[in-house]
Amino acid sequence: MLVKTVFDSGELTALLSGDIDHHTARTMRLVIDGDIERYRPESLLLDFRRVRFMDSSGIGLIMGRCRLMQLCGGRVRLENIPPTLERLIALSGVRSLTDEGR
């Protein structure tokens, strides 16, 4: 299971698992966007605790969801970024698009 989602009190949580690359990001995107469409959440929480690897396709995944949530007036939070992913996240500047960056 690449992504498990839970909707509760206006927040959609997506627990991402395994490797995020161009191959897997596509599936994750389809699942998350389907649930955004269905639940219209006020915020999207992307939980990285089970992510073992990520390349810039994961950054694209985050950026794309930020854009989508912005369109419906919502926001995105990133949680439990593993230490090995910190440098990529920092390099991308993607935090400025999320809740923390505002």
Partner: peptide, 15 residues
């Protein structure tokens, strides 16, 4: 564009 971040080469360069 779209889902591409445009960061592939930047990542290769810095890593």
């Amino acid at each position: 564009g779209g889902e591409r971040a445009g960061l592939g080469f930047a990542v290769m360069q810095s890593f």
